[in-house]
Amino acid sequence: MLSYQHSFHAGNAADLHKHALLATALAYLARKPKPLSYLETHAGRGFYRIDSPEALKTGEAEAGVARLEARFPEDHPWRAAVAAARAAHGPAAYPGSPWIAAHLTRPGDRIDLAELHPAEHAALEAAMPARPGLRMHRRDGLEMAKALVPPEPRRGLMLIDPSWEVRDDYARLAGLLPVLHRKWNVGVLMLWYPILADRRHAPMIRALRTALPGLMVSEVAVPQARAGHGLRGSGMAVVNPPWGLEEEAARIAARIEEG
């Protein structure tokens, strides 16, 4: 949806959950010298500031990264990416998932990023560091996913992180993830979703568990940033989770949910 602007939500507790899992998975894949592909269907602007008017208006970053970052060890790959972003752009910098992926992958790896919103796509192009193998697409991300899998190199990871502003997204993703897995059976597929009071994600996860035995699901409750905030939690469904990701997911959840 072209109305969604992640600048209001960047650095919130759900971002920490999503980005810490993503960074863990990418760091593991990058240990091997073989090249990999990274695809992202809804890239946003790639880079944010938690002192922006949008972030200050919602207070979500204050309840998220500002409150929770110190609970993660300094050598965690997510914290390493945040530190690199701050070193380059100042203490209020917060890297989105495209920036984290660029930081954790190597020059020989391939990155394909889709963003349909014209202003967000322009910001993405400005934010991403120039490097070989990086392509930014102004197109529907799910169409890109279907068109580009299986990628070359075949080793790799795809992050699917739509706005979820349309209820049909849940049924659409329940059908799409198994299709992508059939086309790219070695790929790590990571689907982030919000947990709302009505738990509208639950039928999607039940369908995915049936279609994809071995699916990893990580869900965490997130602190309420303000009165009336609809987000209750953050979820990530992972096909072909890398070794150790499930154990790390439990540690990430404990850090976010503790008191």
Rank of each mutant, 00 (worst) to 15 (best):
K146Q: 15
S163D: 02
R31C: 07
L191Y: 09
S163Y: 00
G141H: 10
G187Y: 01
L196A: 11
A63Y: 05
D168R: 15
T58A: 08
M158D: 01
L124K: 01
H137Q: 07
R31H: 12
M136G: 00
E165K: 12
A85S: 04
F8M: 10
L177R: 03
S97L: 07
V222R: 02
P203H: 12
P203V: 11
L16I: 13
L124M: 00
S163H: 00
A119T: 15
R206S: 14
P95R: 06
H19M: 02
A197L: 09
D169F: 04
P95Q: 08
V188H: 06
P150V: 06
K32V: 00
E257N: 06
A171Q: 14
L176Y: 04
W192I: 09
I205R: 10
P223C: 01
L180C: 04
V149R: 01
R200P: 01
T210N: 11
P132T: 13
D198E: 15
H137Y: 13
L2T: 14
R71N: 10
S37M: 07
G64E: 05
L26S: 04
A127F: 05
L189V: 13
R232T: 11
V222S: 04
L189E: 06
R200Q: 12
P194L: 08
A61V: 07
P35S: 09
T210Q: 15
V217Q: 05
L176R: 02
D51Q: 06
L157G: 05
H9A: 08
E120F: 07
H229K: 01
L157F: 09
A13G: 08
A25W: 03
L104M: 06
A211T: 10
R131T: 01
P203L: 12
V149H: 00
M1T: 15
P162Y: 04
E40L: 10
H229F: 14
Y193W: 09
R255W: 14
A227V: 08
E248Y: 05
